[in-house]
Design a protein around this nucleic acid. Structure first.
Length: 697
RNA sequence: UGGGGCGUCGUCUAAGGGUAGGACAUCAGACUUUGACUCUGAGUAUCGUGGUUCGAAUCCACGCGCCCCAGCCA
């Protein structure tokens, strides 16, 4: 796990070796308080705080509250608790950019006096045009100087002071830095330092009507706090020259800005706008709904900070933009919870009557709290004639790879006895409501009987008379596809990502049966319910109305039922399949496979409707292919050397339909034409005279 | 088109002129009173083309691909 230092640590170590900061390391996490923190922020917090810890430095939490229109106290509070929960130890160093407004103002006047800042009266759209003029062919041209660029220092000072006093309406004018209107980096084309905003600030009230912009403010904030390494995400790379320019002009403490790639996950959306939308549209119950990617949601769901820290350490820190498989997070959570005590719970109960067990008898059986850790001790679990087992553990007509209960089948009840199903009873609705079983007294504790009989299955159970009834919320991934929204268009009514919601992301079991010891579980407690996963006590739980969340499923290596066979079987509509994973197979098969994953290809017959050459690509043809779907697909294929577009129209072809869409010469290709040979000798595979959309075997 | 950044197994990530290694995922097997955990094994990678060199993922050149910037957001 521990590989060498990451590139940021290398910089820090080099600085320590050269004495650049006299051995000091001081980092910071500078959120804007305009939303809840999510996993992406966790990386930044863990990275910054971790650096400070590792090199004996300090870590600050600072609210970058320079835009009064967007910021709220609610977010400040949630961010503070999230940072603390993640282990970001800022001690007493909780700061607000707004506390530096006076100092920033003094420095702004200094730049005006130096002649490198001026008040500009251009309206916003005009300023934008002058900063980014384009030639008729779309080439970016050098910017045009503002007519106000050469105002005198006296005039600028006067105007700026009047801006501060509130004499001008918002939008009337701004303070700009005088840098370089010809720079290729647009950020250097006289960026805005102050704009007029007449809004109530959450800490400053109505004291200010001019507010510093990010580029002007951020370096100053870092400088004031004595930050040494100012770590931010890649999109700020273009802003670094500005960061440096302001600090150089002022001649003040000059931290080094370092950029890294932010953390993204598959099956997840992270943009604040979209998260807000999900909360507003009640797709989820709130910012801390356990399906959300927020820190607050993770905490509520039962993830621990240590899982996140381990994960992020394992993933490393680079400048490669990467999307992490959400399975990595899930796996990290499982590993982190592995040591937690075991309990038994039945989510979807079927009653079991042990016909040869004495009606009045109750045994207290001793079960291990943890199978590997003897120090975790034992607990006592009552056993009696009537039990509950999970519906998933019984099949009326069991297949041969099903190891659990069925007519005539024998299984081990974990830590109790072997039982054999002799009969079952159905209710009026045809559902099985009761299993009649016999037990073998020679198997007490679940031990093997002396006659050498074997069973393959061990299942969990709960004594009916002693069971607690609880609500259990079973969570799955919120999105059914890797890249939510990617295959759809946004509309006003429905953002693209909403098309990819997993309809089974929450299943509530409100008649779950728990072993009695769970009655004393407190908020914050997590258990493994054997064979089901890790579960924690939810915020909504009350002593007489217990509520548990499934924090994470266990790995399931074998299909629980015959309908969950992920491999060869091809879904009819690969673009939106697999919305119904079986309960015990939480990881649905991917609907879009990677190029090269040949065991899972879905082949369909298609008819070419149109074909044309692709500009600037000798080998590519852009085909429109009817696959019997609602709309024909665009497929870009490298077959231009062998075929002219006209030759292809009307032809039947074989298409790999479940490839991940790929962009070829900027055209999104949704599928691949099957062909053999190469170059001019290329042959298309012909499916014969079949209907578009037919399966091809 | 201008400026900035990034390209290593399916996915992350090491290797800083000298055996392309690890993790996750996948597959196969062992073990198992959780179809879990654990253990063993397997396969698959340096964006391309040239060049320098005894030797290149690494250095050079030219391409190609992807991401970011053109808010008075951060």
């Amino acid at each position: 796990m521990s590989s060498g230092p990451n590139f940021i640590e290398e910089i820090v170590e080099a600085d320590n070796a050269s004495g650049k900061w006299k051995g000091k390391v001081h980092t910071r996490f500078p959120p804007e308080p305009n939303g809840y923190l999510h996993v992406g922020h966790a990386k930044s917090i863990i990275l910054n705080a971790g650096l400070a810890t590792k090199y004996g430095g300090k870590f600050n939490l600072r609210f970058d509250d320079t835009n009064p229109a967007k910021e709220e106290q609610e977010y400040v509070d949630s961010i503070i608790s999230d940072v603390k929960w993640l282990g970001g130890d800022f001690e007493d160093r909780l700061f607000y950019a707004s506390d530096y407004f006076d100092q920033m103002y003094v420095w702004a006047e200094k730049l005006i006096e130096k002649g490198v800042a001026y008040v500009c009266d251009l309206p916003p759209d005009e300023m934008s045009r002058q900063r980014t003029p384009q030639s008729p062919t779309g080439t970016l041209l050098p910017g045009i100087d503002s007519p106000f660029r050469n105002r005198s220092v006296t005039e600028n000072l006067d105007l700026f002071r009047r801006m501060k006093k509130g004499e001008f309406a918002p939008g009337k004018c701004v303070l700009r830095a005088k840098i370089d209107m010809a720079s290729g980096n647009i950020n250097l084309r006289d960026p805005v330092m102050y704009r007029i905003v007449k809004e109530h600030h959450h800490r400053q009230g109505d004291k200010w009507c001019i507010y510093a912009s990010y580029d002007w403010a951020h370096g100053l904030e870092d400088s004031i706090e004595g930050i040494t390494h100012s770590i931010c995400t890649l999109e700020f790379e273009n802003h670094r020259p500005l960061y440096d320019w302001f600090l150089d002009q002022l001649g003040i403490h000059h931290p080094q800005q370092i950029e890294f790639a932010k953390l993204l996950f598959t099956h997840t959306i992270l943009s604040k706008r979209n998260l807000r939308r999900m909360v507003a549209d009640k797709i989820v119950a709130g910012w801390d709904d356990p399906r959300m990617p927020t820190i607050a949601a993770f905490r509520r769901r039962g993830y621990r900070a240590s899982a996140l820290r381990t994960l992020i350490e394992t993933l490393g820190v680079t400048k490669n933009e990467s999307v992490i498989d959400i399975g990595r997070l899930e796996e990290a959570v499982r590993n982190d919870l592995a040591s937690v005590p075991r309990r038994m719970a039945v989510l979807d109960p079927i009653k079991v009557v042990i016909t040869n067990y004495p009606a009045a008898q109750v045994e207290q059986l001793e079960l291990d709290n943890h199978p590997k850790d003897t120090a975790a001790g034992k607990r006592s679990v009552p056993f009696s004639r009537e039990l509950y087992v999970d519906r998933d553990d019984f099949m009326e007509a069991p297949t041969k790879d099903f190891f659990r209960l069925g007519p005539g089948r024998e299984v081990r009840l974990r830590g109790a006895y072997w039982i054999k199903c002799e009969n079952f009873v159905k209710g009026a609705d045809g559902k099985v409501i009761e299993l009649q079983c016999t037990y073998d007294p020679a198997t007490r504790g679940g031990e093997n009987p002396p006659d050498g009989r074997k069973v393959k299955g061990t299942i969990h159970w709960v004594s009916a008379a002693h069971a607690l009834t609880a609500e259990v919320r079973v969570y799955e991934r919120l999105f059914a596809v890797e890249a939510p929204g990617a295959a759809h268009e946004d509309t006003e009514a429905r953002p693209a990502f909403m098309n990819d919601l997993n309809p089974e992301s929450l299943i509530v079991r409100n008649n779950a049966k728990l072993e009695p010891l769970l009655g004393s579980a407190k908020l914050g407690d997590t258990f493994q319910f054997e064979r089901l996963g890790y579960f924690n006590v939810d915020l909504d739980s009350k002593p007489q109305a217990l509520v548990f969340n499934r924090t994470m499923s266990l790995n399931a290596s074998t299909p629980a039922k015959e309908n969950a066979r992920p491999v060869v079987a091809a879904p009819a509509k690969p673009a939106k399949s697999e919305s119904k994973p079986a309960a015990a197979a939480p990881t649905p098969p991917p609907s879009e496979i990677e190029f090269g994953d040949f065991t899972k290809v879905v082949l369909k017959a298609g008819k070419v409707k149109a074909a044309e050459k692709v500009e600037k690509a000798d080998k590519l043809l852009k085909l429109t292919v009817d696959l019997g779907e609602a709309a024909p697909r665009t497929i870009v294929s490298g077959i231009a050397e062998a075929f002219a577009p006209d030759q292809l129209i009307g032809r039947n072809v074989v298409v790999v339909t479940n490839l991940k869409p790929r962009a070829l010469k900027g055209i999104e290709s949704r599928g691949m034409i099957l062909a053999a040979g190469s170059g001019k000798a290329l042959q298309l595979i012909n499916p014969g005279d079949v209907v578009p959309g037919s399966d091809v075997k």
